[in-house]
Amino acid sequence: MTSQLCHIERIIGDRAEPGLAHRLHHLAHEGRVETVTVAVADLPRRRFRAVTDQGTECAIALPRDTRLFDGAVLLLEDDRAIVVKVGEQEWLKLRPAEGFALELGYLAGNLHWRVRFADGHLLVAVDVPRERYLARIEEHLAAGRVTLVDG
C-alpha cells in the first residue's frame, strides 16, 4: 500500500502562473490533471493523507512555513498533475437586534467560532454541522434577539 502512495513534499506553484497554466492546460485536455479537495478548516495542515478525484493516494508533508491554497500545484509530471481545490466555506449570516450586537459578539468569542463582520451582520464559519451553531443561539433566535439571514 505504502509503495503506491504519491509522496508530496512541496508546492510547485500556483496553477495561475503562466508557465504552469500552459502545461496544466495541455494535461487537462488529456484528462490528466487530478484534484485534491481540501476543506477550508484543513488548509493549515502540513501533513496529511488525501485521495485525488482519480483515486491517487497522496502522502502530503509540506515544510512548516508553507500553507496550502486553492490552485496549489502539488505534482507536475509529463503525464500527470495534481492540483489543490479548496472546498467552499459555508457561512451562517446572523443579524443581531438593536442593542444585542455586543452580546452576540461575546457569545461567538466564548464559543471560539470563526467569524467575520459584514454590513452589521455576524458571519460564522460553518466548520461543523450548522445545527450545532443554531442550537447555541436557539433562545436568542426564538426571542428575536438574533435573526438568521438567508436561510
Partner: peptide, 8 residues
Amino acid sequence: MSKGAARV
C-alpha cells in the same frame, strides 16, 4: 525550511 518531524 524543512518539513521537520510530524507533530501530534
